[in-house]
């Protein structure tokens, strides 16, 4: 059981670094939500920043890959994302098509490289 949880310290850090800073915005939305216009300029900016942060995370995983992904050469990871994006656009914005094509290109490429 102890290996399932790991150490309790890590779990405490999860709450301080992950749960509270995330949950606070939902609770603020619940408490103060009534008076805010969904289309206000402030929220347009917030949405743009949030989208860009998410884009940064995507880029981070591809540019500075963790664990097993680091064994795939840079050009192949970028190529797989590009191929996936092409499929996504061609299939009229099908997330499924984009993910499958990106995965197939990367795995086939890595397999072929050995």
């Amino acid at each position: 059981m102890s290996s399932f949880i790991g150490d309790w310290h890590a779990l405490a850090i999860l709450f301080v670094a992950g749960v509270i800073p995330n949950q606070i915005w939902r609770m603020l939305g619940l408490w103060f939500g009534g008076g805010i216009d969904e289309n206000s300029e402030l929220l347009v900016w917030v949405r743009a920043v949030a989208t860009a942060i998410l884009a940064g995370i995507i880029a981070q995983i591809v540019v500075q890959p963790p664990g097993a992904l680091a064994s795939v050469p840079d050009w192949l990871r970028y190529g797989a994302v590009a191929a996936g994006f092409a499929a996504f656009m061609l299939a009229r914005k099908s997330i499924f098509a984009g993910v499958i094509v990106g995965e197939v290109v990367m795995i086939a490429g890595k397999y072929w490289l050995g």
Binding site: G18, P21, L30, G33, E38, V46, A50, T51
Partner: peptide, 13 residues
């Protein structure tokens, strides 16, 4: 995390 989570505020609202 908190900056990424700001987007939840307009969603909840």
């Amino acid at each position: 995390v908190t900056v990424s989570a700001i987007r939840l505020f307009p969603m909840v609202v």
